[in-house]
């Protein structure tokens, strides 16, 4: 009657990880209007304002139009926001709806969990970033001084904010608390990190204070990799970003390894 039960199942050790990664990618693709299209439209509006209208009339860095200056920041903003949104919303909603227990009872390891969620978030962030860059080519030409360095900075940004999304989703107990991470931490740090202006044009005190904003190194490093000029040495930007990425990764791994707020 149920003879197939007698055949013991085979076990493929990497399959839990691949399945979780696939599930996470499917999850954001199923609601792609919200997860991909909406952020691309928002960034396109910025591009239109700065590219087609103000972009050619302003210049904040010698040798480049304002549109050329602002596009790298907008691309990275897309990467950052969407990488954060992917891990934070997926884990938080699962916790909130209770279906997170489905993962807790499976043989998925902590490392597989972090890696699958991170890679899916990086994919979403980089997809949005690429689309924003693609649309920006309608308005501006970028020199791409160090294309590999730019790719590496974008990948590090998405990795870093995927970790931050995991941390926020685990710590937040309510949707309100989760949105506070975005509205009161990430957005101010992005806007004050030099997306729309170079920190070198700020008054000395504000310029010095800006050096404490870790996102300055990320945004400036990415822009420098594309334009070839920036406020912070490229190596320093890499070093600070790597350190921050590793710290957040360690924090996320600790929370997940201990099952903090995940296992009762």
């Amino acid at each position: 009657m149920i003879a197939p039960l007698r055949q013991p199942p085979s076990f493929v050790p990497w399959l839990p990880f691949i399945t979780l990664l696939k599930k996470e990618v499917l999850r954001f693709l199923r609601v792609s209007f919200q997860t991909l299209l909406a952020p691309i439209v928002t960034a396109s509006l910025y591009l239109f304002v700065f590219g087609a209208t103000l972009g050619e009339r302003l210049s904040v860095v010698e040798g480049f139009s304002y549109a050329q200056f602002v596009v790298p920041g907008l691309v990275l903003m897309g990467v950052i926001s969407n990488s954060f949104a992917n891990t934070s919303s997926s884990v938080f909603i699962s916790r909130y709806l209770g279906n997170f227990v489905d993962l807790l009872v499976t043989p998925i390891t902590g490392w597989q969990f972090i890696l699958a969620y991170t890679l899916a978030a990086m994919l979403r962030g980089l997809l949005v970033g690429s689309a924003v860059w693609g649309i920006s080519t309608l308005f501006v030409d970028l020199p791409w001084s160090h294309p590999l360095a730019a790719l590496l900075m974008a990948a590090m940004a998405s990795f870093l904010f995927a970790q931050f999304g995991l941390i926020a989703a685990i710590h937040a107990n309510t949707m309100d608390a989760l949105s506070m991470f975005n509205n009161f931490l990430i957005l101010p740090l992005i806007y004050l990190g030099g997306v729309f202006y170079p920190v070198s044009i700020l008054p000395p005190l504000w310029a010095r204070l800006s050096r404490f904003n870790p996102l300055l190194y990320l945004i400036d490093g990415f822009r420098q990799a594309i334009l070839g000029v920036g406020d912070v040495p490229l190596l320093q930007a890499f070093a600070v970003t790597s350190l921050l990425a590793l710290t957040l990764f360690g924090w996320a791994a600790l929370l997940i390894g201990r099952g903090y707020k995940l296992r009762t």
């Binding site: 839990p16 399945t19 696939k22 599930k23 499976t106």
Partner: peptide, 13 residues
């Protein structure tokens, strides 16, 4: 998805 979570390749029967 759940079969995959447990590392079990597709067992259609």
């Amino acid at each position: 998805i759940h079969a995959g979570f447990y590392g079990v390749p597709r067992d259609e029967i």
